[in-house]
Design a protein around this nucleic acid. Structure first.
Lengths: 156, 156
DNA sequence: GCTTGATCTAAAGCTCACTTGAGCTTGTAA
DNA sequence: TTACAAGCTCAAGTGAGCTTTAGATCAAGC
């Protein structure tokens, strides 16, 4: 592992189109690790570009940083992850995407029915009973749709 | 419009599986309006169940409350929206869903390629150039993917 | 050696979407 | 008529995910 293989935080940020502050934040949260120069500056492995990329994709799929950290923890400690390692955890993302698409298709179908009747509120359509947690990811503690099975919106 | 047609905030909340505080919050943000009893309590129209339902669905699709307010503003003022009115703005949601599905399918395809090569970072795959803004909705000001066309993550 | 841009830390700030709490008032069922 | 659940307001708090600020240090080219 030579100095040549190490990149500065600015470069990692540029390569992943992320803010430098975000990289530091991810490090603070334990999603990535950094070596340090004698002067105290962070130096990352090239492989960390891949790691940050994973973080970004997973975020788009609605995982929290905590969940992403848990996924990343499954990568081997002590050595640079290889293709097989990445394949393993990327497959989890693929499953997420599949689930998301299915949920959206279902919402679309239900909405189509509702466009027909104009009801949008649905004992009939059941548009809310989807339990689509990923889609619900936003800020703050929140009353989640799907956490209240049985309490279905309806219009009389 | 008789008293009988009006519902209390608790009922609106129950019918839409939302918290009472959330309903008040939406009112404060201008997404819904309430009449008041002489004593000052809110009374909603039954049609507001539909309105809140719309808010919830739109949120799942990644719209901010501000954007949702803009959509709702397209409903007729002064009269209860009819089926045609709802159809018009619901169609906008359908388009969003379609776009979202297409974007996800693309991500999945790209990820499949990457699972093959283990790269996950991709000049090759271009996984980041999707400009999938809806998926990026989270809290706070943020460095958005897709806002930096050209700055594509890559591994050498 | 000097300059200049990159990086450092720590703490505070910010947005979004709500929730919580305190203290008080309404409205309805018995 | 009275109990009491439900509602009211206003202010502050929450949590996720970062950004900003300030003041100091580092590293690399000339």
């Amino acid at each position: 592992m030579h100095r040549r293989d190490l990149i500065a935080i600015g470069e990692l940020a540029a390569r992943t189109a992320t803010a430098v502050s975000a990289i530091r934040f991810y490090e603070a949260k334990g999603l990535i690790e950094a070596l340090r120069t004698r002067g105290g500056q962070r130096r990352f492995l090239r492989a960390d570009i891949r790691r940050v990329s994973f973080i970004l994709i997973a975020q788009q799929l609605g995982l929290t940083l905590e969940e992403i950290a848990a996924e990343l923890a499954r990568l081997p400690a002590g050595r640079t992850p290889n293709a097989a390692d990445w394949t393993r955890i990327s497959t989890g993302l693929r499953a997420r995407i599949d689930a998301r698409i299915v949920a959206l298709a279902r919402t679309r179908e239900l909405l189509d029915n509702c466009i027909g009747c104009g009801c949008l509120s649905l004992r009939k359509c059941g548009l809310y009973n989807r339990g689509d947690k990923a889609a619900q990811r936003g800020a703050g503690p929140r009353y989640l749709l799907g956490d209240h099975a049985g309490e279905i919106a309806e219009v009389e």
